[in-house]
Amino acid sequence: MNGVPIVLRALYDGERELERQFLAAADRHCGEHEFHHVAKDMARWSHEHSERIAHAAAPHDLHLPGPMDRPEPGPPAILRETPGRSVGRQPPPGLHLLRDLRDLHLAATENSLNWEMLAEVAQAAGDTGLLDLAADCHPQTLRQLRWTNTMIKTLSPQLLTSL
């Protein structure tokens, strides 16, 4: 018995959750075009990761659902933005976007740490299949992290000085 199933389960849940969060945020901020489109690309990476994790989990007696459809984007957003229209006195959508970016960044960080653990246990246990999985997927998680960080850096000055 080793901790591989525990890490795989955590990673699977984390990637599923991150995919859901990316899609929900993309949906909420459809007027923020760059965020909207790239967030959907990022969701696809997480989707592919969870599929591959489910596949890799089977030999470890861990049966994760999959291949599966994309998860629903969650409950309808209260603050969904209508492009081209001012939002009046409601809380500024710019703040919402920054909060979503921060949450996405933190969720991706959690996944990144789990990939790190998987790579470590795979090496210690001599499991090349799992090591390859981590080597393939972890870089994309790191790119999700850099992207959310870049977006926060790019948007913060304007969104926070114009409140």
């Binding site: 001012s86 850096k153 000055p157 304007q158 114009s162």
Partner: peptide
């Protein structure tokens, strides 16, 4: 000279105008 973030590209300038900032 603003250099805390990348210079704003045109499509984002129009987005900021749309948002009202």
């Amino acid at each position: 000279i603003p250099h805390y973030a990348p210079p704003t590209p045109a499509m984002q300038i129009f987005r900021y105008a749309e948002q009202g900032s």
